[in-house]
Amino acid sequence: MNEISMILYILGIILLPVVFFYALYYISIYVYSLLSISYKKGLVLTFFSLGATFFPSILLPITDQIYLFSIGSWQISIHPIGFVFPVLISISLLYKSKANWQFIILSLIPVSFMAFLMTTPVLEKGIIAPFPLWLFPPFTAAIISALNKDRMNSSPCLYAFSLGVFGVILGADIAHFPELLSYSVSSSMHAVIGGASGFDLIFLSGIVSVIFTKLFLFLFETKNDAQFLRKIQANM
């Protein structure tokens, strides 16, 4: 390896994580802006979610899970970033925007059902959904939100985020829980809801739902504009 190629190689090593973290930061900030969260709050949320995902031993040095209760050999906990963060964001934003709760509860049924179908409980790993199956619950949440945007009091992105988060909690985690607990284990086992932190299905489907919703809204608007233009041309 000559000197120039070595310098380029080291530059690549330096730039690779920078580009990766910057891309994640940019996507997070974009999603938070669509959810009407201010830049400063979004930055704090992004810092904690990325920090807890990639450097958990530094950001959460004492415990990275909140213990809830035990069932037999199973100890049930929740993750402060993977579970508490998205749930608190959803509830606070829905409460502030005076959401249509009836619509949310009804819309949760298909999203939860999709999440239930796409996930499988595995003893060592927890409740998992391989790629691209995990994209279906956020896709359903986004379609429902984009198609019903006129019935909502606030932004469809906010509804999509909440549907994605609660749909996965109900359909993937809670619905599969009895199946996971039915596995016989010899020693004590931990089951952490939202255990993969910022990359857990709960947080991820909330974020992806918002991006899908924005995409669908853009497509629907483009289609409506095209139809409108065609009508004008026909009348001329």
């Binding site: 090593i13 730039l15 910057y22 930055l43």
Partner: peptide, 18 residues
């Protein structure tokens, strides 16, 4: 320029860490 600031901070940080 908040986004540029974040990028530059990350870049400087990466140089330091490496």
């Amino acid at each position: 320029h908040p986004h540029h600031t974040i990028f530059c901070t990350l870049f400087m940080f990466s140089i330091l860490i490496n």
